[in-house]
Amino acid sequence: MKFKAFLSEHGVNLLERRFLPALDKMGKICHLFLTRDHAIFLHNLLNGDGVQCIAQFRKEALFDDYRISSQNEDRIAFTIDVSLLLRAVRSSVSICTEFGNGPSANRLQIKLVKKLPPNCTQPMPFLTFETKGYKSAVIQDVPISKPLSRAEVLELQTALDVAQELPQTLVQVPDLNQLQNFVERMKHVGDLLNVAISKYGDLHVQISTTLITLGAEFRKLLVIGEQAEAPSEERNLSAQTRSERAISRGDAQSVQVSIRHFSRSLQCHLAKPDCAFYGIAPQGACLTVIFQFFIPGTRQTDKSISLHCRLPVLDPGSS
């Protein structure tokens, strides 16, 4: 089982300034799943009681040179502390900046090793960062779990395949800041958030208690997948009435999720996505949020990176 690669300058920027700070907000520990073509960060994928988060990168998006081999179809997976990983990357960047010079400057090597820690009798696995300066090299070891067995990797791959399934209808929210500001106010009202999504391009979020009901509606959003034309005679009705009628016709779905989970998924704004899509899985299995990234200077989707979350549903609601 071997893995060695050189992080590119673009890859360092993606991890240090965007994705690792976002993933750190999702939870302390995640799986890092390395394949022949991808590096994938997986949060909570084998547990159903929290927000699942998947960040996937084609190897070219992060690395200049990428070599992997294992007896499990060149797949390696282990758990790692995201905050320790972020600290190691940031430290390596500062060393490169301060001491880097010549052809070896900014060459940040990352590899899997086994070492014997102090006061231990058994070698332990580490993800090691080696930064070469002008006259020296600095090595940082980030502890990881024992690499997953063949059966465990298969379980992780199966969970990943399931998590990649898209809802039949997705609506685009181009302004995440507006949604985030609203949810921050909602957090002080209650714990449960009702989310409804229609084929007309409407997104409703509402929180209710015995004393107060607070909601927001985002209308005429871009729809991907199954869509429908909103009845013209309902335009002047209240948001709640229109939503209820759309659900009864099968043109919308609603679910109830934790406001804490919804707020946590919005922390992915730290990865600087260009927009987000919301959708509800068939039978209200989960609420899915897909963050979209554009190639800089264009409106074309950057297919080398992807990020999405799946929020567990507290009440499947109706469809």
Rank of each mutant, 00 (worst) to 15 (best):
F3Y: 09
L7S: 07
L7Q: 08
S8D: 06
N13F: 05
R18H: 15
R18W: 05
L23A: 02
K25R: 14
L34W: 05
R36A: 14
L42G: 00
H43V: 04
G50M: 05
V51Y: 05
V51Q: 04
Q56K: 15
R58T: 14
K59C: 09
K59N: 12
K59F: 06
E60T: 08
D65P: 10
I68V: 15
E73V: 07
I76Y: 08
A77P: 02
I80F: 03
S83A: 10
L85I: 06
L85A: 03
A88D: 03
V89T: 08
S91W: 04
S92F: 03
S92K: 01
T97K: 14
T97G: 09
G100L: 04
G100F: 03
N101C: 12
P103T: 08
N106V: 00
N106P: 01
N106A: 14
N106G: 07
R107W: 05
L108E: 03
L108P: 01
Q109I: 07
L116M: 13
P118Q: 12
T121L: 14
Q122F: 10
T128P: 01
T131S: 13
K132D: 07
A137N: 11
V142N: 05
L148W: 00
A151P: 00
L154G: 03
L156A: 06
Q157A: 15
D161H: 13
T169E: 01
L170R: 08
D175Q: 10
L176P: 05
L179G: 04
K187E: 09
V195Q: 03
A196G: 06
S198C: 09
K199N: 09
Y200K: 02
D202I: 00
L203P: 02
L211C: 11
I212M: 10
F218H: 07
R219V: 11
A228E: 09
E229Y: 08
N236S: 15
N236Y: 12
A239Y: 09
Q240P: 00
Q240I: 11
T241C: 07
R242Y: 10
R242K: 14
R245N: 12
S248T: 12
R249S: 15
S258G: 10
I259S: 13
A281P: 01
A285C: 12
V289Y: 01
I290P: 01
F294K: 11
R299A: 13
R299P: 00
T301C: 01
L307V: 09
